[in-house]
C-alpha cells in the first residue's frame, strides 16, 4: 500500500499525487514511469514520474481523469492509499549537455516535462520550452517552466492563450538552431512536432505511453513500429526517435480497447459496475 501524502489540482481534472515510495524515489530518474494499481480489482496503469525526492522518500505523478481508473484515482484524498506501485520502469532519459534543447509538452505530460527541463537546465542546456493544451484552463506549471527556460511559448488548440496550434513552431525552427528536441504529450502532438523538426535534422525524442498491461516486457501489447522494427514501449522505451515512429499505427493501437474503456468509465460514473462495489 502506498500512502498519498498530498493532492494538487493542476488544472480541471488533472491532479498531481505525491506518494510515499522511498525505494522507488531512490532509483527514479527523469523519463521513467511507474505502474499504478488502485485496488485488487484494478488495472495496471502506466504513469510517468513527475517528481522524486530520495531524501523525503517520495515520488509524484500526474494523471488526467479520462478513464475509469484515473477518475477513481481522482476521488482519493490525502492519507488514502493505492494498492500497488511498481517502479521505476523503462529507461531513464538521456540527460547531458546537448546545447540548445527545444522542449514541447502537451496536456498532462507538462508535469513530467518540468522534471525533464529541471534536469536539462542543471546540466547546462539552454532550454526553449513550449507548453500546450486544448484550452487555456488546462495549462499549468507555466511559471515553473518559464523560470528554467531561455525562451517560453504557450500554445492552445483554440487560441485562447498564446499561439493557436503548434504551427508557429515552424517559424521558431526556421529562425533558431536546436541541438535536440524533447516532446511529451498526446500522440498527434508528438507526430506534428516530429514532422516539424525532421526537415531541420534535429534529433527528436518522443515519450510514448502505449497501452500496457504488465509494463515490464512480458505482454507485448505496447509494441510500436520504430524504423520498421518492433519495439516494446515499456522496456525499449518509453523514449524513441520521433522521426522513426509509426504514429498512425500507434494511434490505432491506442484505440484498441476504447469501447471497453468507455463502458468501464460509464459504469463507474453511474455508481459502480453493478457488482455492489463503488
Amino acid at each position: 500500500m502506498y500512502e498519498i501524502l498530498s493532492v494538487r489540482e493542476l488544472a480541471p481534472k488533472i491532479k498531481l499525487f505525491e506518494v510515499h515510495a522511498p525505494e522507488i524515489a531512490e532509483k527514479a530518474r527523469p523519463g521513467q514511469f511507474i505502474m499504478v494499481i488502485i485496488n485488487e480489482k484494478g488495472e495496471r496503469v502506466p504513469l510517468t514520474i513527475a517528481e522524486y525526492d530520495a531524501g523525503k522518500g517520495t515520488i509524484a505523478f500526474a494523471f488526467n481523469e479520462v478513464g475509469k481508473t484515473t477518475k477513481q484515482l481522482g476521488t482519493l484524498k490525502e492519507g488514502d492509499r493505492v494498492w500497488n506501485i511498481t517502479g521505476p520502469l523503462g529507461n531513464p532519459s538521456e540527460i547531458r549537455n546537448f546545447g540548445r534543447v527545444l522542449c514541447v509538452a502537451g496536456g498532462v505530460m507538462i508535469a513530467p516535462m518540468l522534471l525533464q527541463i529541471k534536469a536539462l537546465h542543471e546540466t547546462g542546456n539552454t532550454v526553449v520550452a513550449v507548453v500546450g493544451a486544448r484550452i487555456k484552463e488546462l495549462l499549468f506549471f507555466k511559471e515553473e517552466i518559464k523560470a528554467l527556460s531561455h525562451k517560453f511559448y504557450v500554445a492552445t488548440d483554440d487560441g485562447s492563450e498564446g499561439y493557436k496550434s503548434l504551427e508557429f513552431l515552424k517559424d521558431v525552427l526556421a529562425e533558431e538552431k536546436f541541438d535536440r528536441c524533447v516532446a511529451m504529450g498526446p500522440v498527434p502532438m508528438l507526430k506534428t512536432v516530429s514532422e516539424f523538426t525532421k526537415p531541420f535534422g534535429i534529433p527528436t525524442v518522443v515519450t510514448l505511453m502505449p497501452v500496457m498491461v504488465d509494463g515490464m516486457g512480458m505482454c507485448g501489447v505496447c509494441r510500436v513500429s520504430v524504423g520498421g522494427k518492433m519495439k516494446f514501449g515499456c522496456v525499449d522505451g518509453p523514449e524513441f526517435d520521433g522521426h522513426l515512429v509509426d504514429y498512425e499505427e500507434l494511434i490505432k493501437r491506442q484505440r484498441m480497447f476504447l469501447p471497453e474503456e468507455r463502458l468501464s468509465s460509464l459504469l463507474w460514473e453511474l455508481g459502480g459496475c453493478g457488482c455492489g462495489r463503488k
Binding site: 480489482k41 484494478g42 488495472e43 495496471r44 475509469k68 481508473t69 498491461v213 484498441m256 480497447f257 471497453e260 474503456e261 463502458l263 468501464s264 459504469l267 459496475c273 453493478g274 457488482c275 462495489r277
Partner: peptide, 15 residues
C-alpha cells in the same frame, strides 16, 4: 492475472 473474464467487475478488458 488481471481477471479480464470478469470485466467490468475487474478493470482490465479483453476482446
Amino acid at each position: 492475472l488481471m481477471k479480464a473474464y470478469a470485466f467490468p467487475e475487474y478493470d482490465t478488458p479483453i476482446r
